[in-house]
Design a binder for these strands. Structure first.
Lengths: 265, 265
DNA sequence: ACAAAAGTGTTTATTGTACACCCATGC
DNA sequence: GCATGGGTGTACAATAAACACTTTTGT
């Protein structure tokens, strides 16, 4: 940070355009597993990128934090009130040619929210927003380097699902273990649906023991058929983690597993 | 990224000062385990931060990548040729008050290199640089929010040591399993030194089977006493990972485990 | 010869998976 | 009743830790 004299002279002169883009994920429990994991995209009508999709983003304001800008982007571009949503920094993208209009540095943020709590309320200035299934989204359909951001975000969520407790950010206040399993199946591997209920439950044994997952007493309203599951509430810290990673391997997604940015061997 | 019309008009006007700071870690195999894990810091002589330490950093240039700037920072501030070193993006720090001279956004980079390959070659314009043990470094001694960066970097390395193959970036071309164990012990937990050699070796069984760790034939020159260990070479990709995380728990470092930036519950 | 450290194998405890069984609901 | 899905317990397989033993060096 500008310790050298030549740097210090210029220290107060802005030298970059900084934007914030948001990768907002949700899981639609009603949809089939292959399409349940969805991402929010905007449909662009610019001349330059006609027909292509992009992530919601804004330019950073003078005294704004990154997550402040991210929440503002969701409000301004999609009419979403994200003031209470889970948000974390994903990484900063700065390939010199990533934006044709000049050099723009973008801080990508990852947001998670349960689909039940999301209400797309189109207001003034809101763009056409759409939810698309992550697994069925062709990378070419995204403008700029937003496909890179989506890839990094997907990898991040898949990893984090195994060692942290973020899965509960994608569920409503109370939920059944089946719904929890649906989240894991949608993001990690559909094969988890064919896993035994007992084994799935056992993986969360420590959370039950620590009262992080507490039964709420009630049963879920009957689904279609079969016994309704017990309802649970998550009381643990959002940033909580397991001591030992969950055993379920993510689906062997080929290609670079770039959780790691800016790496050169 | 500036899709809205109001944003687009201003899209080419720089709106922020962007810097790049580097957290360079090494492990000195000679030192006692408690002090072997070290970080490079600069001793500041500014009036504002007299006597305090800081991480090497520079302002980002117009057409420079982040890791380009990071390597330049190491060269300019400490005289290190980091052109071939392992580097990854750590996160971007932007608290509005993090720099008293104005709002500066800093992209922190994590660098790893074996201590044997590091040659501090003070040249013109190079600042006083020092290697300090990470575990014994009081957070207050660092200027700006560099203590935050160091904390995030430490957590990142500790996690990554367990699921990826970066440990080998901290070792010379050929090394013994004892030296490898010393790296893990220094960063994760000194108790690993008291772990049986056989069990440690068994953890790397898959790497031996995949010829990622290959014996180089020779024996290490005798240490102090006892049988010298076999020498090995790491041939795998820098970004390689284990399918299953290593079992060794990091030392139960209290405090926030912030690998996660910008999170608000 | 002895101590110290490295390498190899076996035994035991812990953890993950598979399977069998009972419970509650819709038809 | 019967099919379907949820909840509980047990048996088997895989993995981590503990331990015993052999090899190679310096003193």
């Amino acid at each position: 940070m500008a310790e050298g004299l030549p740097d210090q002279v210029a220290a107060l002169r802005p030298n970059a355009v900084v934007a914030v883009d948001v990768v907002l994920f949700t899981v639609r429990l009603g949809d089939p597993t292959g399409r349940a994991w969805q991402v929010l995209v905007l449909e662009r009508d610019d001349a330059a990128f006609a027909g292509r999709l992009s992530l919601p983003g804004v330019l950073l304001r003078a005294d704004e934090t990154f997550d402040g800008a991210a929440r503002r982007a969701l409000a301004a571009k999609a009419g979403l009130d994200a003031s209470q949503w889970y948000l974390e920094q994903l990484g900063t993208f700065a390939a010199p040619d990533r934006d044709s209009r000049g050099r723009v540095i973008s801080v990508a943020q990852l947001a998670l929210q349960g689909s039940a709590q999301i209400r797309l309320a189109p207001g003034r200035g809101v763009m056409r927003a759409a939810w698309l299934p992550v697994r069925a989204l062709p990378p070419e359909s995204l403008a700029f380097d937003h496909a890179d951001m989506l890839r990094v975000a997907s990898n991040r969520v898949q990893s984090k699902l195994r060692y942290s407790w973020i899965a509960f950010q994608l569920l409503p206040e109370t939920f059944t273990l089946s719904e929890l399993r649906a989240v894991y199946a949608a993001i990690l591997d559909p094969a988890l649906l064919r896993l035994n209920t007992g084994n799935f439950r056992k993986a969360f044994e420590t959370l039950f023991a620590a009262d992080v997952l507490v039964p709420v007493g009630t049963r879920a309203r009957a689904g279609r058929v079969g016994r309704p599951g017990d309802l649970y509430r998550f009381t643990g810290p959002v940033l909580g983690r397991w001591e030992r990673e969950l055993p379920w391997q993510g689906s062997p997604e080929p290609g670079p597993d770039d959780t790691t940015l800016d790496t050169a061997g």
